[in-house]
Design a protein around this nucleic acid. Sequence first.
DNA 1: TAAAAAAATGAACGCTCACTCATTATACCA
DNA 2: TGGTATAATGAGTGAGCGTTCATTTTTTTA
Lengths: 202, 202
Amino acid sequence: MPKVTETHKEQRRQAILNAAEQVFLGKGYQLATVDDIAVRSGLSVGALYRYFPSKSEIMLTLMEERLGRTPDLLERLTADAGGPWDQMSRCVDIFMLALRVRHPSTGRLLLVAWGEALQDRVVREGLLDRFRGVVDYLSGVIERGISSGEFRPEADAHVLASLLMCLADGVTLYWAANTPGLELQAIRATVMSMVRSYLSVQ
Amino acid sequence: MPKVTETHKEQRRQAILNAAEQVFLGKGYQLATVDDIAVRSGLSVGALYRYFPSKSEIMLTLMEERLGRTPDLLERLTADAGGPWDQMSRCVDIFMLALRVRHPSTGRLLLVAWGEALQDRVVREGLLDRFRGVVDYLSGVIERGISSGEFRPEADAHVLASLLMCLADGVTLYWAANTPGLELQAIRATVMSMVRSYLSVQ
DNA sequence: TAAAAAAATGAACGCTCACTCATTATACCA
DNA sequence: TGGTATAATGAGTGAGCGTTCATTTTTTTA
């Protein structure tokens, strides 16, 4: 029996996911055909269906594995920060700039996901989970800053966190749509300056 | 000849657009069928095609007539403001709250539009036009505030305007997706507070 | 090396849906 | 009221695409 190794099967799976991501980013979920994905991953349609039961399952897996981990990623990259201020500024930096530079496809995948959100309940819930995850983490950071006396006690952690999340995704979408005149650097600096003045004691 | 009156024809046209908007908001553009739209507008498919040459043209018309006018609307609603501060605060209010309450479908239509942006060049360009229109108007408001000495001269009008636009649309999208725990009132207040401290002289 | 089991193939199927067009209904005019 | 030009109808068409499955290829074991 050619019961091929587990890693080989995992490689195929990832190849399919990579191909699907490329195709989805190129023409969107609806216009992408299973054939497109198969060709790009170097497999036949039939083989592809041995790894994923349907086209939509491919999309959902992409969301889980490449978008849903945003909260974890944010946490990992900012956990070793020197304190609330440093942590805050790194969060803003990652969300407004670093992710665009280092993982550009993530931003475009977000655009694809929003495109499907209206028609697919599961995609929508995936986006909302991601929202909740990020907001919870940011809220925690802000609350710790308040507790330690470094942030203004009247600040509303949850509201500021939601606001930043909405802003980050808004920027990401327009960035992913190639909006002319969208200066990520300048936006990041301005956001940080506003957050600083909002959170500063007095 | 029953050369029906021009207003009658316009009524039919609007009926189709209204029906299409309802259907699109309900299941998204791709899942909506021309039949859905026809049934909801009380016409047959054939009749519908006497008013619009294709399904996508209906979508584009909706975008132009119900989303593309956002800059004009913003201008009309804030032109009579008492000064830059009042104008700024009204812009924020309209974008973060009033539009959601008074014209809820506009926000949801934005979600539909973003859904098509990736697959349809014209839709994408419509969104970018709207972005440019709003940003230009907001930039003007800020620049006037700087000129009159009421806003801090170091403030970057274009960057702040882009930032607010991204934030507004980010909030709108999550609102349109029924995100739990998204408090528009509180977000508006916090944004305004941040903008105030950012633009204040000193 | 032969047999067996898993993996891969891709033509075919069936379904959906945007769009068409021959036909019918309707509103206006003389 | 009859004639006519426009409006409306909706069954039909054809193309596209997700999914299946009978067949072939490949890999491993005995």
